[in-house]
Write a protein that binds this DNA or RNA. Structure first.
Lengths: 236, 236
DNA sequence: AGTATAGGCGAACTGCTGTTCGATGTCAAG
DNA sequence: CTTGACATCGAACAGCAGTTCGCCTATACT
């Protein structure tokens, strides 16, 4: 935990291909078998015929701090830093627990447009974006990848009990029904905003839930629905 | 995961003392060393002079489903059912993740009084009560044991943007400042309620945040503060 | 060209480790 | 009392596994 992901990856890149192969195999073996491999098992898996070569690289990995070894003991290999520790442990922990890690992709109604990850993005746990942990109860069985979060700026939804600074959890979807609270991207204005959605045929009415604010009218072509509000989290 | 704690404990009690000692030692050894012990290491730790006896009891533990063994492989012991699996894994997962498990102790403003666990309760993860997982960001560094959650019933705090059905996260504390949103227990009325707190000297004013509702006035002796609102979670 | 240096190979050695087997003790059922 | 199941013990064995050592190859530096 004393090394962050970027630093670990940088250190990992310093290793030779063989050392990477050995380290990967050891990690996989321990995860699958529940006990560490022998030198000869490592050699066989990594196409190394000589036990001394495995031993040599193992020593290197120990010196670099990736492993610990109990001298003279069979299978006396212990993982020290898992490259995946911080990231993947959090993923596994989230799976074990009733928790989803939702990417917090930005602030809504901000000067810059909020760039949402595409629908085709495979890894839900991009380390570059903040995440917020929410109870899976809030997702109603949706996959974590279908969900994202935005922090609300402004009081335009105050009557919907959504305050400035609240975090809204949204389900990624392109369509919605009248009256739904949705995040929409307005290409014309180059901004993302949170409003109640009403299709009036020739135009879309985006209705703030604040009596002192006027609705926005946009052409259907200029209104991309990003997602529908699933829940609200407020930290006081 | 297919066995709950009670069932596992019952099965554990069926084991002989030696088998318990062996199982405990194997668990401890793996946790401390990172790799499983040899038969002779087990024997030494459990005061068994013969390797065959260790082997004999190991076979029993495998037959009972506590362990798995890779035949002919040194240290080929793998733990199958940890007695602490379900509960402690959730705890460890919560620690690894930026998540706290907060006991959801009941609904507020209900006919029955909400019984809060005492201040001295040691285990924060009582399996008897529901828990809700919240981001530790909401706790502002507080220990999970200082925090609990209640589900709000009624719209008395609607102007504080807290709706019927919302879950409020509270910090356990006995005092508060004027204007704080607090959960208070009213012994006279035998109920717990969520209100804004105002000390008017001779009496306490518990102010709903709803213009259509009147404040409650109680004697300071008849008003026990349970906790102060840290955050709000709403699932739509 | 000479020479460190790093990485690799294979064999041999030694101690570790799981397995097996015969013998012993205990205890309850027949 | 005998029997058999269960648990234990000690010893021997064969294979497993970490270590070491001499030798080889390629690269880079002098």
């Amino acid at each position: 935990m004393s090394y962050d992901d970027a630093e670990l990856d940088a250190l990992y890149d310093l290793l030779s291909d063989r050392q990477k192969a050995i380290l990967d195999f050891v990690e996989r073996f321990i995860n699958e078998q529940g006990y560490p491999p022998t030198i000869r098992e490592i050699g066989e898996a990594c196409n190394i015929t000589s036990t001394s070569v495995v031993n040599y690289n193992l020593k290197k990995l120990v010196a670099e701090g990736w492993l610990e070894r109990a001298a003279e003991k069979s299978r006396g290999i212990r993982l020290v830093r898992h490259r995946d520790s911080a990231k993947q442990m959090a993923v596994r922990a989230a799976e074990a627990l009733n928790v989803a890690r939702v990417p917090l992709v930005g602030r809504i109604v901000a000067s810059e447009p909020v760039m949402l990850p595409g629908d085709d993005f495979g890894q839900y746990y991009d380390p570059d974006v903040d995440t917020i942990e929410v109870s899976k109860d809030m997702l109603h069985g949706l996959a974590p990848g279908e969900v994202f979060a935005l922090q609300v700026q402004g009081k335009s939804m105050i009557d919907a009990l959504i305050d400035d600074g609240d975090v809204v959890i949204l389900r990624r979807q392109k369509t919605c029904n009248d009256g739904d609270l949705v995040a929409v991207w307005l290409p014309e204005r180059n901004e993302t905003t949170l409003k109640a959605f009403y299709d009036e045929g020739t135009r879309i009415r985006l209705q703030p839930r604040n009596p002192s604010m006027k609705p926005i009218y946009v052409h259907p072509n200029n209104c991309q629905i990003q997602g529908k509000v699933l829940g609200v989290i407020r930290m006081l």
